[in-house]
């Protein structure tokens, strides 16, 4: 059904980080928000993405904000970096989703929800680290990878899942001896994302806990946050709720804290 060759083909097709984005991220890393904004202006698609993001009701602006300098100012250094990463990931999205009932807007909403709640979590954990804040942006890559690999096998997978509760990650591991999260790591490497980001997202599958205590704690919060979002009606209807297995035991010890942070 899925072969290692198909996975290799998918990875080969992932474009390298575009030059403008590379420069924008480098400038953001150097803390140069103004120059980063000027660079970002050159990529019209990125400009449109940023503009549609800050003009969502969530940000509550009465008049439309379209100037990239202003947008980066609103988002701040970390928020801007996170948003550029989110944009990069959105470049991997299919034009038409087949496996999951998603579209450009709903995937964008998922990215934003994850980012906003992740920020809240890191505030609660008292963590101020640009790389850790940006780690959340890589998480939805697991959804894109599932879509890319399984969309042509949708009916087969549905039949398989009607007799055995197998999630996409397990199917991939059994067939190809690699996981969705391994592939996410490969994407991160290709895009020069930091090792720390890769480790947090890899451990957030809940199946491969990290030996590093801080990374493991963050991975638990990320895993639980993902399922909090995937329990929202829009994403349940999109067929995302059970695309990977929720590791309830893995997150049990942080659940009470999570419930407080999310006002449950």
């Amino acid at each position: 059904m899925i072969t290692n060759k198909m996975i290799d083909n998918f990875i080969d097709k992932i474009p390298p980080r575009p030059e403008i984005l590379q420069d924008t991220i480098r400038l953001l890393n150097d803390g140069n928000l103004t120059k980063a904004a000027k660079t970002a202006e050159q990529d019209l698609a990125l400009k449109g993405y940023l503009s549609s993001l800050v003009n969502k009701p969530l940000y509550g602006f009465k008049t439309e904000v379209s100037n990239i300098g202003q947008i980066f100012g609103i988002l701040g250094l970390t928020g801007s970096q996170q948003t550029v990463y989110n944009y990069m990931l959105s470049l991997l999205c299919p034009k038409k989703w087949v496996l999951f009932n998603l579209n450009e807007n709903s995937f964008h909403d998922l990215q934003i929800n994850l980012s906003i709640h992740w920020k809240k979590i890191l505030e609660h954990l008292n963590i101020k680290d640009k790389e850790i804040e940006s780690a959340i942006t890589l998480l939805p890559a697991s959804i894109i990878v599932s879509e890319a690999l399984f969309s042509t096998k949708k009916k087969d997978v549905e039949l398989l899942r009607s007799v055995n509760a197998l999630d996409y990650n397990t199917i991939l591991v059994k067939l190809c001896n690699t996981s969705l999260f391994n592939i996410c790591k490969t994407i991160a490497t290709k895009w020069d994302m930091s090792e720390q980001i890769q480790q947090i997202v890899y451990a957030s599958s809940g199946l491969n806990p990290s030996k590093d205590e801080q990374i493991d704690t963050l991975a638990k919060w990320m895993h639980l946050l993902l399922f909090y979002e995937l329990s929202q009606p829009m994403f349940v209807k999109a067929g995302l709720n059970d695309f990977i297995d929720f590791q309830l035991e893995y997150v049990q010890d942080i659940y009470e804290d999570f419930a407080k942070v999310m006002d449950l």
Partner: peptide, 18 residues
Amino acid sequence: MRAMIKNGIGLFSPQGFL
């Protein structure tokens, strides 16, 4: 949501928050 069917039991398995 699709159910898994085994031993005549249709099992629906939501995950996360209800």
